[in-house]
Design a protein around this nucleic acid. Structure first.
Lengths: 343, 343
DNA sequence: ATTTATTTTGCATACGCTTGCATTAAAGCA
DNA sequence: TGCTTTAATGCAAGCGTATGCAAAATAAAT
C-alpha cells in the first residue's frame, strides 16, 4: 500500500507469496501462469481490493485503453444520443472515453490535438461535422487510428462511417416526387461537409431521374437560425415550394417552427422532410418524416473499424456507408396507395 | 525519442544541453529555474515539439488532471448542454474529461466506480439524477472530491449544486394561482431524487400559501412515457386540472404531445409549466413556460466547488442552490396585467 | 532413473516523469 | 576581495506496472 492508500501489485505479491511479476502476469491475458499461483494471486487481489493501475500500464505498453471522442455542438440531438451509444459500446469493450469539446477557435484546436496525443489515446473518434480537416490530419499523421463518425473526407485516407447520404437524398427525392410535389426545395446541410454535400447531391440526382430539378438550394449550415431564415425566404418568394427537404432533423425542426410562425400548415401547405431520425422527430409536436441514420449499426461499425485499426496499425482506411431507410410520418404528404413502396 | 516516436524530456535535455530534471522544472510551475535555461529549454522543446507526458506525470504526482464525468440518459437535452458547458469550462482550466455513461445494471455500476478510482481522476462530477447513492458514497469514501450536479443528497456530506428547486416550485405555484388556475396538478420528477422531491414540495408549499392544494401529484419518473400516461390519466378524469406543473422540460414536452393527441389546446384547455428551460423549450413547437436552471452559473459553481475541494481535500462539503427564474412563454395562461411581477 | 523439452517464476530493467538532496554557481554583503 | 546566503542545477530514487531473460520447477520421453 503506497502513501496514497492505493493497493499495488507488490502488496498483492507479498500476501500471495509470489513475485510482483507473477501478479502482473495474472492480470495480463495470455501470460504464462500456473493455475495454482493464479488462484492464489486472485484471492489475494480480491481480499486487498487490488486493480492494476491503468496509467502505469499505459506507460509501458503504450496502450491507454482510452479513446478520444471529439464532439462539437451537442444541441443537435443526434450527437448526444450517438455519444451515449458510443460510450456504452466502448465501456463494454473495456475502453474509456476521453471527451473533447471542439470549439472553433484555432488555438483551441491546436491544444486539442496536442492533448489527444499527450494522453496517448489508443484511437480517436470524431463525431461532429464541424471538425476541421486539420485536426483529423494531424492525429492521423501522428499514427493514431482515427475514424470519422457521420462525416466522410473523400480521398483523405481516413476511415469514416456515414449513412448512405447520397442514396438517402435520392430516396427523399423519389418519395416527394411520388407524392406529387412539383416544387421541391432543399435547405441543405453545410456544404463544407461531405454529409451536407452528399445529401444535396442525392436529392438533385433523384429529382433528375424524374425530370425535375430543385426549385432552390440554400445552405442551412446545420444551424437553426440559418435554416429558419432560409425557410422564410423560400416561402415568401412569389412561387413558394410545395416541399422542403432539410439537411438534418435539427434544422428541420427550426424550419417547421418558422413555417408555423408564418401560419403555414405542414404538410398541407408544404411538406417537410428531415434527415437523421433523432428521437425528437417522432415526438408529437413535429412528427417528422425523415431518413433514419441507423445509429446502432453506425456505432458498431465505427468501433469495429477503429478497433481493427488499433489492432493492426497499418490496415487500410475504410469508408463505410450504411443504408438509411426513409421513415414516413406526418410532416410530408404521402403518395396515395403505396405507402411502403420502399424508396 | 523513444521507440514509439514520442519525444521525451531526455531528448529536449540533450538538445538544450541541460539535465532532464531541468526540463521537468521548466514545465513545472513554481519550480526553480534560471530564466536563461528556461529559455533554452523552451526553444528546444518547441523545435522538437515536446510536451510532458501527462500519464507519467500523473503516476508521480497522483494528479491526473482528469475529471470523471458521470452521466446517464442523454435524451433529456438538459444534460448534453450541461456536458458541453462543463467540458468547455474544464478544458479551459487545463482539465480533461473522462466520460462515463452510467447504465443502471448493478454490475456496471460496480465497474464504473472501480474504473473511476483506477484512473486516478482528480475529481468527479455526477450529472444525472439517476445515479445511485452507492456510487457517490464509494467515490467520496475513496477520498476523491465529488460534486453532484443537479442533484442533492441531504446530510450526505457530499457537495452538490442545484437550482433552488423548492423555491422554483413555489414560484410556479404563485404564478399559476395568480393566473387564476383552480385545479393545479403536478406530474413530478422522480421522487427518489431530491430534485424531484424539492420541486414538488415547493409547489405544495406555494399552493398552501394561497390556500390551495394540488389536485393530484403523479410521479413521472423523469420519463417521457410515464409522464405522457400521467397526463392522459389526469385529463381523462372527471374533473381534469386546468394547469399541470411538470417536473422537468423533458417530461413537459411529452405531456404537451399527449395533450395535443387528446385534442386539448395549450394553454386554453390546460396550462403547462416545465422546469429547466432547455433550449428546446424556446422552440416554436412547444413555447414552454418554465423555470430556468441557470446553466452557466451552475457549471461555474460546480467547478469552483470541485476545484476547491481538489485543492484542499478536507474542505467541508458545500450544498449550493442557485436561484432559478421563471420564464414566461406561451404554454401557460398568464395573470392579467402584471406580467413580470417576479414570482 | 536420467535426459530433454516445456512451463513457471523471479530478477532486473524500462516506461517518462517529479522531487528530495547534495552540489555548484550566482549574488549579497562587509 | 573573501565569506555567507540564496538560487540553480544535476543526481538518483522512485511512481506501479510489463516483459525479456535466465534460472528453477515440472512434465514428457527414453
Amino acid at each position: 500500500m503506497n502513501a496514497n492508500g492505493r493497493i499495488t501489485a507488490h502488496d498483492v505479491a507479498k500476501l500471495a507469496g509470489v513475485s510482483q511479476s507473477a501478479v502482473s502476469r495474472v492480470f495480463t491475458p495470455g501470460a504464462s501462469v500456473a493455475p495454482a499461483t493464479a488462484a492464489k494471486v486472485k484471492v489475494a487481489a480480491k481480499t486487498l481490493g487490488y486493480r492494476p493501475n491503468p496509467l502505469a500500464r499505459a506507460m509501458i505498453t503504450g496502450n491507454s485503453r482510452i479513446i478520444g471522442l471529439v464532439v462539437a455542438y451537442l444541441e443537435n440531438q443526434f450527437y448526444p444520443v450517438a455519444i451515449e451509444k458510443l460510450s456504452h459500446a466502448l465501456q463494454a469493450k473495456g475502453y474509456h472515453v476521453l471527451l473533447f469539446m471542439a470549439s472553433n477557435s484555432d488555438g483551441e484546436m491546436e491544444r486539442l490535438t496536442e492533448d489527444l496525443l499527450a494522453y496517448q489515446v489508443d484511437g480517436i473518434i470524431t463525431a461532429s461535422v464541424a471538425i476541421s480537416n486539420d485536426v483529423t490530419r494531424r492525429c492521423s499523421d501522428a499514427g493514431i487510428p482515427l475514424v470519422m463518425f457521420n462525416r466522410g473526407q473523400p480521398e483523405s485516407g481516413i476511415s469514416s462511417i456515414t449513412s448512405a447520404n447520397a442514396l438517402g437524398g435520392r430516396k427523399v427525392a423519389r418519395f416527394l416526387v411520388a407524392g406529387g410535389h412539383q416544387r421541391i426545395a432543399h435547405i441543405s446541410g453545410w456544404q463544407g461537409a461531405s454529409t451536407g454535400r452528399d445529401r444535396a447531391r442525392g436529392l438533385v440526382e433523384g429529382l433528375a431521374e424524374a425530370g425535375q430539378e430543385p426549385q432552390a438550394i440554400i445552405d442551412g449550415m446545420f444551424n437553426r437560425d440559418t435554416a429558419a431564415a432560409a425557410a422564410r425566404q423560400l416561402m415568401d418568394a412569389p412561387n413558394p415550394p410545395d416541399a422542403i427537404f432539410v439537411g438534418n432533423d435539427h434544422m428541420a425542426f427550426a424550419v417547421m417552427d418558422a413555417l408555423r410562425g408564418m401560419d403555414l400548415r405542414v404538410p398541407f401547405d408544404v411538406s417537410v422532410v428531415g434527415y437523421d431520425d433523432v428521437p425528437m422527430a417522432a415526438w408529437g409536436a413535429y412528427d417528422l418524416t425523415t431518413v433514419r441514420q441507423p445509429l446502432l449499426r453506425m456505432v458498431d461499425a465505427t468501433l469495429d473499424t477503429l478497433l481493427a485499426q488499433i489492432d493492426d496499425r497499418d490496415r487500410a482506411a475504410q469508408n463505410l456507408e450504411i443504408d438509411a431507410p426513409l421513415i414516413l410520418r406526418g410532416s410530408a404528404r404521402r403518395p396515395e396507395g403505396d405507402d411502403d413502396a420502399g424508396f
